[in-house]
Nucleic acid binder design. Structure first.
Lengths: 356, 356
DNA sequence: TCAGTTTTGAGGTACGCACCTCAAAAAATG
DNA sequence: CATTTTTTGAGGTGCGTACCTCAAAACTGA
């Protein structure tokens, strides 16, 4: 086969596009990479040829040629709860593998529930060093502004875990928190003896959209289906185990007849400690969020009765895939990127992974 | 930078390995690709250099150079149940994307529960055309033999959905079916009024390992925790909706007091039809397997009360990744490939994807 | 030590693409 | 029309690897 053989039956290449469009390789290249100096008519002829052949750029080859390195950054709340820790582990764990795929990731921890701090970090970001950011943070005007600015500078932005729909973020990687709250209520309703009782809802902060949505969903289903259940107003634990452990005695002093707890936020360690100390753990039905070493153990031993979770490994991998697709201007496989609302009972917990 | 510059701070390449090992590029290449004509001492020097540098072959570049095309085949049971159909959809859907990644996949349907047919297809497989096979089929001696043969011919073999541990298959992509059965029992036990009643278990075939394991797990938990529940012997539906619909009336004639059904196999269509016709659907608690358009609708409307499921998209994508890793002799990310036992209640069903 | 064999090195081509330069061709301008 | 400006083509180099050839060097055995 000569230098420019026909390449029968295989994927079309830039050479095929050039031949079909009746232009030179250089011109196709200019069009594909948005370089100037091509007439509009010619540009269209090239795109027609691309259409006709069904040409798709070989990203692996392109990245090889370009020496491209993707640079992504995660911004996580500075909180010592297990969910965030698990995200960190996943990020570190995957970074070695990603190095082989020309993508560098790093993460930074930002004071939790502090929109100003987050906004200021965002505004200092340099498009030269960062191609995309994944943000796990509160939705406020300042953050929205910062995101919209960063988008203008050409970076891709992903909302992680908690959506930021008011901003121009490219995508949200996380679960449908309203549905998660509804699921929790469905479980709680079934698990409470006689379908009735007084339920405490623990939340993180009113600034956290994910927590608000969970509460909303929880209330919906309780109202729809479980008339006998009385839901107290939310206890704000700020995702902080220690704070939570301090607050709970007061709540139970006021409401000693609580029979159910929906722990919709992070900070399970504090809750578990409290339950153990007070021996309340087999008197109170607990539906909690996020499967971690701790919550897994609590489920195993009956302190927790069900766990709603989202796979942190999936969250991180999905974020990377979406960010990469965004900077490459490629489509996203929605069903692959949809994060499931996992329901764990004692029986279906996945085996514990060794942390790397 | 000259032709053989130092490449500081970046990933080491074959050139770096050659330099450090004090041999030529050609020799490194011979070692890496297992070509003959290199002394053992030299081979070791090369491996030492690889170790020292932490060199990892750039698979993208290697595949580009080699013009490699992965060729994988799925073998699915010839059954018109929705689960298998969903797998087919996923395979077809992903094949376009895979074409861009130099991998071709196809599937073939084999008479269900017919070990001879499966074994004969396997033995006819040509390593020239197929690099790897994913098998969803029964575990018998004939199949085991055929798999071991095929392995000897250099193909990679994955057990899909139902494990084939007696054979030399490289990997199993699917859920822990024992745990799935246990989960089903846990749900059933909680959902049955007063925690007691007579439960029918529907299975596919005694030849199907996954079904056997589910039954086993189900019995375990019922015995451990739900003394008031009486479980009947399995009804074999052969994953065939029509057959199942024909068999069920007889069972209910004999046991009119059935209050729970664990449908551990495929063929939900037949079950749903029967329940609707006989208006049993709100008298009987049903825990079924696999989220499909049909079972989703049944859950939505209360005919089913819970669904245990495995994500077919994940199954297919995972299979491909593992097969590719196998033929490339690369490690597998276990936590990414672990298929979750999904529990779906009405509230946490994922939105319906448009089939492609 | 010499011929024979094995091992090694040097070099090239290719994969599909990005990016560069220079000159030729075509179009726009006055 | 000639001149300037814009557009296009031809060609090369490199990304990291595979795979090939040929000759030089290093070992082997007798």
């Amino acid at each position: 086969m000569g230098k420019h053989g026909r390449n029968i039956g295989l994927k079309p290449t830039v050479n095929d596009v050039a031949r079909v469009a009746g232009v030179s390789l250089a011109t196709v290249d200019r069009v594909l990479n948005g370089r100037p100096g091509v007439r509009n008519v010619t540009i269209e002829r090239v795109y027609d040829a691309i259409q006709e052949l069904g040409y798709v750029r070989d990203t692996a080859a392109a990245n090889l040629a370009r020496g491209r390195v993707y640079n992504f950054q995660f911004l996580l709340p500075q909180s010592n709860n297990e969910f965030v820790t698990s995200l960190e582990h996943q990020i570190m764990g995957i970074s070695k593998v990603l190095a082989l795929e020309r993508t560098k990731i790093s993460y930074e921890k930002i004071p939790a529930f502090n929109p100003q701090a987050l906004a200021s970090i965002l505004s200092r970001m340099d498009p030269e060093n960062v191609d995309g950011v994944a943000i796990f943070g509160p939705e406020t005007a300042a953050v929205k502004e910062a995101i919209d600015q960063i988008k203008k500078r050409g970076m891709s932005v992903i909302a992680l875990v908690s959506d930021l729909p008011s901003s121009e973020r490219d995508y949200f990687v996380g679960i449908d928190n309203l549905a998660a709250g509804r699921t929790a209520a469905q479980l709680m309703g079934h698990f409470l003896p006689n379908g009735q009782g007084k339920v405490l809802v623990i939340t993180g902060s009113m600034l956290a959209r994910d927590h608000l949505e969970r509460r909303q969903g929880f209330d919906q289903v309780i109202n729809e289906s479980f008339g006998g259940v009385d839901v107290l107003s939310s206890l704000e634990g700020r995702d902080d185990p220690d704070l939570l452990e301090k607050l709970l005695p007061g709540v139970f002093a006021k409401h000693p007849d609580i029979t159910g707890i929906y722990s919709s936020a992070a900070g399970n360690a504090g809750l578990i400690n409290f339950l153990r100390k007070t021996s309340l753990d087999d008197k109170v039905m607990v539906v909690a969020h996020e499967l971690t070493a701790l919550s897994r153990e609590a489920l195993e031993h009956g302190s927790f009765n069900a766990i709603i979770s989202q796979d942190t490994g999936h969250l991180v991998r999905s974020t990377i895939r979406v960010l990469r697709a965004n900077v490459d201007n490629l489509p996203i496989n929605l069903s692959q990127e949809r994060i499931r609302i996992d329901v764990y009972l004692r029986e279906n917990m996945p085996p514990l992974d060794e942390k790397i």
